[in-house]
């Protein structure tokens, strides 16, 4: 599948994240004041409310924290898919993101908690932004 909904702009919090995705980079933020890892992207640190955040590039390696395989979704773009996965992935740099696990033969059997995964940027049929998804490694 490559017809996922695209992010929509203007949206000032997530713009730099999606610009990174276009360049093949999975970005997260870190607070320069207190060191907190910040994700989803925003313009302040939720730990100390500082607005002094630095963008960083993740290596894109992580672990499946939890997942579900969706058998029924009436939303266009997903309704026709058959079973597909959603997952929370814990990246090694310390942030958690919602994503999808791809590249498995049977998502109902081949995905498990604790599985090591790596990011890839899935090109879409329409829209300028690829979508970061994860594929099992090793």
């Amino acid at each position: 599948m490559a017809n996922r909904p695209q992010p929509q702009f203007p949206e000032p919090n997530t713009e730099a994240y999606w610009e990174g995705v276009k360049e093949g980079e999975l970005r997260y933020q870190q607070c320069n004041s207190c060191g907190e890892i910040v994700f989803y992207p925003r313009q302040h640190c939720p730990a100390c409310l500082s607005d002094d955040l630095a963008w960083k590039a993740s290596k894109g390696d992580g672990t499946v924290y939890t997942f579900s395989v969706i058998r029924q979704n009436r939303m266009p773009g997903f309704a026709e898919l058959g079973a597909y996965s959603v997952a929370y992935v814990d990246l090694d740099e310390g942030f958690r993101m919602l994503s999808s696990i791809v590249g498995v033969e049977d998502p109902t059997k081949d995905i498990h908690i604790g599985q090591r995964v790596a990011v890839e940027f899935e090109e879409q049929d329409e829209g300028e932004y690829p979508i970061p998804v994860f594929r099992p490694v090793g």
Binding site: Y40, P41, T66, F67, Q72, F78, Y88
Partner: peptide
Amino acid sequence: GANWRMNMEMPYGSTLISNYAMVKQR
């Protein structure tokens, strides 16, 4: 529409049920 959180989640097609399912899984 443009929304901080939806921009990070919409591409993945999660449903209300899949959210609760992820809790059960864990």
